[in-house]
């Protein structure tokens, strides 16, 4: 992803590489050892002044990222015998892969100094905090856990989640909300669009490239048969598609650091969100294999 912005002399500057949060312009990788004796301490050879970003002064420079805890993509799922849902007890859970891409994108924007703070949000039971920790280890600054448990958690859907996201976006004065385009459990693909609607913000869904341009954002979108480019005003909601980036692995030092970061805890009622859901689901398993015979050797 290339980020292009205007410098003071309104000369477009391409941020080529970012190391330890310092943008290096035209000298990617020019880090010199400070002393031959250690060789470990690295100092920046030439520090370039911060890239000036035309984020209007009223904007917070805060990005809200939604992270969902789902059954790990590699687990073969089983439907409960009474068809009331999917077996989740004792099953490995992870962060939804599209949410990882959303976190990565937000952290990248921060590293490039386009934004100041990344806040990771998850709605769900106690275990959702693990998912938030993963986001913190990837580089998010702090977390918000909106606790929803039991029957309520079983019944909530994207509409309720988007109400929570919209309320938080307002409360936190976020300038951008980045979500995954869909979760790999319910495959709904709705939350981003609905959050945008509730906030009356524009939406850049299925994004494969983001470029911040002043108080607007250019989004290249994955559509049927190709790509489409749109430009939307900020604040906005963006949903991440697969090609947006490759999420980083959390390193051990960063996992340790993440343990010290703060996770605020709240209830949907604290945000004035009503969780009443008017949809009910029954579930059925599906044969994954159709035929066993007929292979020709």
């Amino acid at each position: 992803m290339n980020l292009t912005t205007q410098s003071a002399a309104s000369q477009p500057i391409k941020v080529e590489s970012v190391g330890f949060g310092w943008p290096l312009i035209g000298c990617a990788g020019r880090w010199l050892p400070s002393g031959a004796s250690t060789g470990f301490t690295l100092k920046c050879f030439r520090r370039v002044p911060r890239v000036k970003v035309n984020v209007s002064s009223t904007m917070s420079g805060r990005v809200l990222v939604g992270v969902k805890r789902v059954i790990d993509y590699a687990v073969k799922i089983r439907v409960k015998p009474d068809n009331s849902g999917v077996v989740t007890d004792g099953v490995k859970h992870s962060m939804n892969p599209f949410c990882e891409i959303a976190v990565e994108e937000a952290v990248k924007l921060k590293e490039k100094k386009f934004i100041k703070e990344v806040v990771a949000v998850s709605c769900g039971p106690q275990q959702s905090q693990e998912t938030i920790r993963t986001a913190l280890a990837m580089g998010a600054d702090r977390g918000i856990h909106v606790e929803v448990t039991g029957k309520e958690y079983e019944n909530i859907g994207p509409l309720q989640i988007s109400k929570i996201m919209a309320a938080l976006a307002k409360k936190e004065d976020a300038q951008l909300v980045i979500l995954g385009k869909q979760a790999i459990d319910d495959d709904c693909n709705q939350t981003g669009q609905m959050t945008a609607a509730l906030l009356d913000w524009p939406q850049g869904t299925f994004a494969s490239e983001l470029t911040l341009e002043g108080d607007k954002i250019k989004v290249v979108r994955e559509i049927d048969g190709g790509l489409e480019t749109i430009k939307i005003n900020m604040p906005a909601v963006v949903t991440a598609d697969l090609r947006l980036n490759t999420p980083r692995y959390a390193t051990l030092p960063n996992i340790m650091k993440a343990k010290k970061k703060k996770i605020a805890n709240m209830k949907p009622a604290d945000l004035g969100v009503d969780l009443t859901s008017r949809r009910r689901g029954r579930y059925r398993g599906r044969r994954s294999a159709r035929r066993e015979e007929g292979t020709v050797y």
Binding site: L159, Q190, Q193
Partner: peptide
């Protein structure tokens, strides 16, 4: 891509939960 982009936005404005796909 068109329907998935548009209809959830409409649904949220109507305060109803959409059913995808």
């Amino acid at each position: 891509a068109f329907g998935k982009n548009l209809l959830p936005r409409v649904a949220a404005k109507l305060d109803v939960a959409p059913v995808s796909d």
